[in-house]
Design a protein around this nucleic acid. Structure first.
Ligand SMILES: [Zn+2]
Ligand SMILES: [Zn+2]
Ligand SMILES: [Zn+2]
Ligand SMILES: [Zn+2]
Lengths: 142, 142
DNA sequence: GTCTCAGTTGAGACATAGTATCAACTTGCC
DNA sequence: GGCAAGTTGATACTATGTCTCAACTGAGAC
């Protein structure tokens, strides 16, 4: 089963129609090799208007099919995601986004809850660094 | 020494002029009891135009005098900050922002660096939950 | 005091990332 | 076929800034 079909089934299972517009957006997303900006996708994606592209991205984001990453400069990008709670490690050199298996804060949440009296409901974490390739590049250029 | 004077000195020490406009923005910020939106401050703050309010907020943000918090709904707010690296715990009920003493991810950074091969340069973390007061309120209303 | 020039300002245009409106269109279902 | 709900797209609008550029200010040079 193709990714497109898989995602279509998830949409249907959640009570949404799988329309030509949505198929076009999903296909456009799957065609991207890396993360993408919503507006950029809207421009490339014939077969769906800008509003529908944004709506579909949000829909897929809610379903956990794509996730939103805030880049180093603060701009949002989207990418097809592994499912479940996870965070990203963004390379400040080339923009590559690496999914992280573990949640870096889960261990600290209890301590924070105890110390603050808050009931922790969620969190948002982005990590920034330089990937191995960019580290290598940074050394050579001299 | 007042907070205004203190911040003015920090500006001067960093090579910036302490102008009437900047004083007005700083005073407006110090008058706020909680976090604020930049545009809201610009509207309230006579004595400085919108662009200058935004510029001054960014300046103070760079100096570490104010910090930016992303609220539960994604909107940015600013608040006078404790200095140094820290994170915030935002109440999803009343919007109260709590400074956290410890960095919840510092302990995990080495493991992530080792596992990923990235050289970690920075991170962004926001925590969301319900403060003690809002937890109490949530129980009563029945 | 006056000159000078970098720093600063404000009005307004522009940019980005969306959301809201709403009439028209599609679809599933009876 | 026809209804009701879901969906769409053009467009306007909002939020949060940044950019441009001419005018202004102010601190030090003379
Ligand atoms: Zn890289
Ligand atoms: Zn996590
Ligand atoms: Zn609260
Ligand atoms: Zn931290």
């Amino acid at each position: 089963m193709s990714d497109l079909e898989q995602i279509s089934l998830e949409l249907e299972a959640s009570g949404y129609r799988v329309t030509p517009s949505r198929r076009a957006v999903i296909a456009a997303i799957l065609a991207r090799k890396t993360h993408f900006a919503a507006d950029e996708l809207a421009k490339r994606c014939r077969g769906a208007g800008r509003a529908t592209v944004f709506r579909t991205i949000r829909l897929l984001s809610d379903l956990g099919v794509v996730c939103r990453v805030i880049m180093d400069d603060g701009s949002p990008r989207y990418l097809v995601s592994r499912s479940g709670h996870h965070h990203h490690l963004v390379c400040t050199g080339c923009g590559t986004v690496q999914d992280l298996d573990q949640c870096a804060v889960s261990g600290a949440l209890r301590d924070i809850a105890d110390a603050s009296g808050y009931e922790i409901e969620g969190h948002w974490l982005e990590l920034y660094g330089r990937c191995a390739a960019c580290q290598a590049k940074a050394v050579v250029p001299a």
